[in-house]
Computed example of a mutant assay.
Amino acid sequence: MNETRPHDTPTGLAEAAEMALRVRAHYEQLEQRLLGRTWTLPELAVGFTNDAAYVGRLVLAAERTWDIDGDVDAELRHKLAECLWWAFVLADKLGVDLPEAYEATMDRIDTGLRKTLRGTHGDGQ
């Protein structure tokens, strides 16, 4: 499922975060017009958990244990992307540098797993 990407597609987390916040700014303008305010942090968190829960249903649909209308693969791609968007939005609202946090977390987990695997196999790899 490797597709070629247009040159303007963000490839790094920092660029993806910038794009996510631009989209969020548009939603905030719409919310201001329709609601007279923007969503609160708890409302944003509920939006994220709602989409994340739907990813679970889409995984079941992909495994053919849950029926949905429409293209499961397209919906799964869409909802996974939205969940990533929500993570960037929530991180921004909470003052978390998500690209930095992701890199630090993955480095820490990778180091720990490598150490565990070396101890499990006893072969130094």
Rank of each mutant, 00 (worst) to 15 (best):
M1V: 12
M1K: 06
N2R: 14
E3S: 10
H7I: 13
D8T: 10
D8E: 11
D8A: 09
T9G: 02
T9W: 03
P10D: 08
P10H: 09
T11P: 01
L13M: 07
A14H: 10
A14R: 12
E15S: 11
E15A: 14
M19C: 08
M19H: 06
R22E: 10
V23Y: 09
V23Q: 07
R24V: 11
R24G: 03
H26E: 14
H26V: 15
H26D: 14
Y27G: 05
Q29F: 14
L30P: 00
L30G: 00
Q32G: 12
R33V: 09
L34H: 13
L35S: 05
L35W: 10
G36S: 07
R37E: 06
T38Y: 01
W39R: 12
W39S: 07
T40D: 07
L41A: 08
P42H: 02
E43Y: 08
E43K: 02
L44S: 09
A45T: 13
V46G: 01
G47I: 03
G47M: 02
F48W: 12
T49Y: 05
T49H: 07
N50I: 10
A53P: 01
Y54A: 05
Y54L: 08
V55R: 00
V59E: 05
V59A: 11
V59C: 09
L60Y: 11
A61D: 03
A61N: 04
A62C: 04
E63C: 14
E63V: 14
T65W: 06
T65K: 08
W66S: 11
D69P: 04
D69L: 13
D71Q: 02
V72I: 04
V72W: 00
A74F: 12
E75T: 04
E75H: 06
E75N: 07
L76Q: 01
K79S: 08
K79F: 14
K79H: 14
E82D: 15
L84D: 08
W85R: 00
W85Q: 01
W86S: 01
F88P: 00
F88G: 00
F88S: 01
L90R: 03
L90G: 02
L90F: 07
D92M: 04
L94R: 07
L94N: 07
L94A: 13
L94V: 04
V96R: 01
V96P: 00
L98Q: 01
P99Y: 04
E100A: 13
Y102R: 08
A104G: 05
M106N: 10
M106T: 15
R108D: 08
I109K: 03
D110I: 08
D110P: 00
T111G: 15
L113T: 09
L113V: 09
L113A: 10
K115P: 00
K115S: 15
T116G: 04
R118G: 09
R118Q: 13
H121Y: 15
G122I: 07
G122Y: 06
D123Y: 04
G124H: 11
G124Y: 09
Q125T: 13
